[in-house]
Amino acid sequence: MPRVANGRATRHPSGEPPKLLISPHIGINVPSGCWSVKYLPDNIVFLLSYFSDEICKTCPGKDHSMQKQGTLLKSPVAAAYPTLVETYLHIQKDAAVETAEKGRTLIHEDDFADHSMLLLDGWVAFSKMLPDGEIQIIDVMLPGDFALIGAVNAPVAACTIEALSDVRFIKILPAQANGPEVEMEQLRSLFAGEIVRMQARTSELLLRMGKGNAASRVAYALLEFHVRLEAIDLSKDGYFEFPMNQHKLGEFTGLSNVHVCRTLRRFEREGIISHPTYTAIQLNDLDALCMLAGINLDAFRHEILIKRSK
């Protein structure tokens, strides 16, 4: 993966053609010797999938076809790009984008950490582990989310951070968010809003883990993911990609694999949910899920979603 440098893809040390990532959901393999491809504004970059033959005209005879790269690149959501991501990339135009494959641990609990994370694509879990190995997922980051991993005066990671899917993210150091400029003040305000939003959804989950049964916990989890993904156009009519297996869903809801399996089968028998594909889920009856979770969906959206500026 080449590092972003002055709006271009730098050559990989191995000499292989670099992969130019120009949006969170589009990847391009640039043919060797083709160096005229530039980064384009995020609000038009999705059009490249339809005009790949216009990407580079300086290398006649070469294959300039665009190839979608991995599971991150399935959903073109440039038109609904989260405000926080837009703001940060406007200020830090040369921000380095890091990647990780599904299952990779990005940081371990108690590791040194004085930075934040801005997730561009994929799902990331924050978890704690007991001495006997039992794991509880505290929160799940989705595309566009921000998380404070550590701070200068508290440089220790409170949780283990694991990629639940292939991910792309930006590591934000303190110096990259500080400053007296108006843009920096706006950025810090958005960061604060994201932290409050995380606290709101975590408190909702803890309430159901402490007082709810298995159906209530699973219903809540599915509704939370739906509401958050719907806000960034990644859930359509209750359908969304779901990279968590039953084991991970159990770690998130505090349930055993057996309880998760029984609950999901019950939901399927009653027509509340279905699984159109192995990696996707369809919420067929939102009202039933809301009743099981004890949620008013409109009020829930208001509580856990940040008001986005137009």
Score class of each variant (00 low, 15 high):
residue 33 G to E: 11
residue 34 C to Q: 06
residue 36 S to P: 02
residue 37 V to A: 10
residue 37 V to T: 07
residue 38 K to M: 15
residue 39 Y to K: 06
residue 39 Y to G: 01
residue 39 Y to T: 04
residue 40 L to V: 14
residue 40 L to T: 08
residue 44 I to C: 08
residue 44 I to H: 00
residue 44 I to M: 00
residue 45 V to R: 10
residue 46 F to Q: 14
residue 47 L to P: 08
residue 47 L to H: 14
residue 48 L to P: 06
residue 49 S to I: 02
residue 49 S to C: 03
residue 50 Y to A: 04
residue 50 Y to D: 01
residue 50 Y to L: 05
residue 51 F to A: 13
residue 51 F to R: 09
residue 51 F to I: 13
residue 53 D to W: 05
residue 54 E to T: 06
residue 55 I to C: 00
residue 55 I to A: 03
residue 56 C to E: 13
residue 56 C to P: 02
residue 56 C to M: 04
residue 56 C to Q: 02
residue 59 C to H: 12
residue 59 C to Q: 08
residue 59 C to V: 09
residue 60 P to A: 12
residue 60 P to G: 10
residue 62 K to C: 07
residue 62 K to V: 15
residue 62 K to I: 10
residue 63 D to M: 08
residue 64 H to P: 03
residue 64 H to T: 09
residue 66 M to Y: 01
residue 66 M to E: 08
residue 67 Q to L: 01
residue 67 Q to R: 13
residue 68 K to C: 03
residue 68 K to E: 01
residue 69 Q to V: 09
residue 70 G to L: 07
residue 71 T to H: 02
residue 71 T to D: 07
residue 72 L to Y: 06
residue 72 L to T: 04
residue 74 K to S: 10
residue 74 K to N: 05
residue 74 K to E: 14
residue 77 V to C: 14
residue 77 V to W: 01
residue 79 A to I: 06
residue 79 A to G: 10
residue 80 A to K: 11
residue 81 Y to W: 03
residue 81 Y to F: 14
residue 82 P to C: 08
residue 82 P to H: 04
residue 82 P to G: 12
residue 83 T to V: 14
residue 83 T to M: 12
residue 83 T to H: 15
residue 84 L to I: 10
residue 85 V to E: 13
residue 85 V to N: 10
residue 86 E to Y: 08
residue 86 E to D: 07
residue 86 E to V: 12
residue 86 E to S: 11
residue 87 T to F: 02
residue 87 T to D: 05
residue 88 Y to N: 02
residue 88 Y to V: 04
residue 89 L to E: 08
residue 89 L to R: 14
residue 92 Q to G: 03
residue 93 K to G: 03
residue 93 K to N: 06
residue 94 D to M: 07
residue 95 A to Y: 04
residue 95 A to H: 01
residue 95 A to E: 05
residue 96 A to T: 11
residue 96 A to Q: 12
residue 96 A to I: 15
residue 98 E to L: 15
residue 98 E to Y: 05
residue 99 T to N: 14
residue 99 T to Y: 01
residue 100 A to S: 13
residue 101 E to I: 00
residue 101 E to L: 15
residue 102 K to T: 08
residue 103 G to V: 04
residue 104 R to E: 07
residue 105 T to N: 03
residue 107 I to V: 02
residue 108 H to D: 02
residue 108 H to Q: 09
residue 108 H to N: 13
residue 109 E to T: 09
residue 109 E to R: 15
residue 110 D to T: 14
residue 111 D to Y: 02
residue 112 F to M: 03
residue 113 A to G: 14
residue 114 D to K: 12
residue 115 H to S: 09
residue 116 S to V: 04
residue 116 S to E: 00
residue 117 M to G: 04
residue 117 M to Q: 01
residue 117 M to T: 07
residue 118 L to A: 14
residue 118 L to Y: 07
residue 119 L to I: 13
residue 119 L to Y: 11
residue 119 L to E: 00
residue 119 L to R: 06
residue 120 L to Q: 13
residue 120 L to P: 01
residue 120 L to V: 04
residue 123 W to R: 00
residue 123 W to I: 08
residue 124 V to P: 02
residue 124 V to G: 00
residue 125 A to E: 06
residue 125 A to H: 07
residue 126 F to L: 15
residue 126 F to W: 08
residue 126 F to V: 09
residue 126 F to N: 03
residue 127 S to T: 04
residue 128 K to L: 11
residue 129 M to L: 01
residue 129 M to D: 03
residue 129 M to S: 05
residue 130 L to N: 11
residue 132 D to F: 06
residue 132 D to E: 13
residue 135 I to K: 15
residue 135 I to H: 00
residue 137 I to T: 15
